[in-house]
Design a protein around this nucleic acid. Structure first.
Lengths: 261, 261
DNA sequence: TGGGCAAACTTGTTTGAACAAGTGCCGATC
DNA sequence: GATCGGCACTTGTTCAAACAAGTTTGCCCA
């Protein structure tokens, strides 16, 4: 039963395959929310793996918040859907798709210019270094939803002049080009729409906007991108789930989801 | 060197002690940010533990974002400070203390009344059930910083009439009283200050506020508390860090991805 | 001097075993 | 009938060993 999977993806380690399979079983509804899953010994037999490998897979699911439970009792299914992946959280395009909306963008400016004091500070560069700045209006189902002001470090920004920034995700494009974007820091607060914001988002000046300032850096800590994104709060919000024992799960939800709370 | 620690806390498992010790060494500055830490083999020798145990401890730190690194290379110190704990994120009082500010509160209302349609929905009760509602102005260094509107399920709310809600953390009080508060869901967006908000926070009506709607429930999923908290955005914000790396692996210790505000 | 290969070192994966500790059930006992 | 063991089962912890896979170092050769 599992051998088939193993043969299909011989490159991946067994504990990852097992984890993917368990996720699939939970997502498909084979194991319902609140129900216990088979014991470790059982899973060992089914997957033809040692207990260490099975435990590794279970730990992965636990860290994703999919299963919970304590010593002595078999783990139970906690959530049927997994929390947001890294790229879904970093990319407006991927996020929109994942919640069933159609993303869009209109690039208003793409410029190379010397870094101001502030931009240089965020990107950890010398003031005056040439950086690349992008101003984009992001749409959800053809409606203005967010205004994005991004500054890129020179090595990443350079690549943007060979890219149609109206075509989709800059984040994914840069990753494909080999730019190391593996850490994100997000600072979330609220601001009033200024003149430019209100014009572009077609709302009155002074309207509250949900602001996310995002600093994206490489695995070694080099800052590659700094962005100031301002959302219309009735179209998007941020959701965090935490547990006393699990790791926090973080999602950006469309306001539609709010109705169900 | 490690034996001392082991003797002191013989009740805790070795991998937790090791993790705590490594955290301590990072926090104390013994290992600087960006520097590699000793290899697994080295740590095995130092801690007199097997490699499995050492790897378990390292996985814990990795999931806390303290260390990073890939196969072939020794892990490097990523951050010197550890992320926020569950209760620090759930309690305004604890949070304020953790960032070196003095928290305060002025209770404006404490009432038992039938649940409105909306409140009943959030608490998953029948409309009309008697619930307890608290309206508090929260202060940072004696300055208004947040307005808190909380509804409690009957069993938790009942306890509040024996508590001085001006004295500190309701969250911690309820936990001490044995109320099972172990899961939190936070929805973050922005709203304009309404009449009451503006009066209490002493800001003009319409000013953008950072809103956190919090649903706290027990480990079994029973909703115990629903709160609508509105922060002055220049006094508080939310910060989240994420990484592309797998945060998986053997983490059940209380730890969160959430960074201090 | 430079390039390239190989060895030494690192972390990642996997197995098997044994014991500790917590939970739930069932039967014996009061 | 209620309560208290104890047994069977579960997950948690720890060890030891071996191989796979990626990185770094340094030496040899051109």
């Amino acid at each position: 039963m599992y051998d088939q999977v193993v043969i299909q993806n011989k490159n991946q380690p067994k504990h990852q395959l097992l984890a993917a399979d368990l996720r699939e079983r939970i997502a498909s509804g084979q194991w319902l929310e609140g129900e216990p899953i088979p014991s470790e010994t059982e899973l060992c037999a089914q997957a033809n793996a040692s207990r260490g490998t099975v435990r590794h897979a279970l730990a992965t699911l636990r860290s994703e918040g999919l299963i919970a439970g304590g010593q002595g009792k078999p783990p139970v299914v906690a959530h049927a859907v997994r929390s947001q992946s890294f790229s879904t959280f970093m990319s407006f395009t991927e996020w929109a798709h994942s919640v069933g909306r159609t993303p869009g963008q209109r690039t208003l400016e793409l410029a190379r210019r010397p870094a101001t004091e502030e931009a240089a500070g965020q990107l950890e560069l010398e003031p005056g270094t040439m950086i690349v700045q992008v101003l984009r209006l992001r749409l959800l189902d053809d409606t203005p939803a967010m205004i994005e002001r991004t500054s890129f470090a020179p090595d990443a920004g350079r690549l943007l002049f060979d890219f149609d920034t109206d075509s989709g995700s800059i984040f994914n494009y840069l990753r494909e080009q080999g730019v190391d974007l593996s850490r994100g820091k997000h600072i979330i607060d609220a601001v009033a729409a200024d003149g430019e914001d209100s014009t572009l988002l077609q709302v009155p000046a002074g309207m509250p906007l949900l602001r996310e300032r995002r600093i994206t850096s490489s695995s070694t800590g080099e800052v590659k991108e700094y962005s100031d994104d301002r959302y219309l709060p009735h179209l998007a919000n941020f959701t965090i789930e935490n547990t006393i024992e699990e790791r926090a799960a973080f999602t950006r939800a469309p306001s539609l989801a709010l109705q169900s709370f």
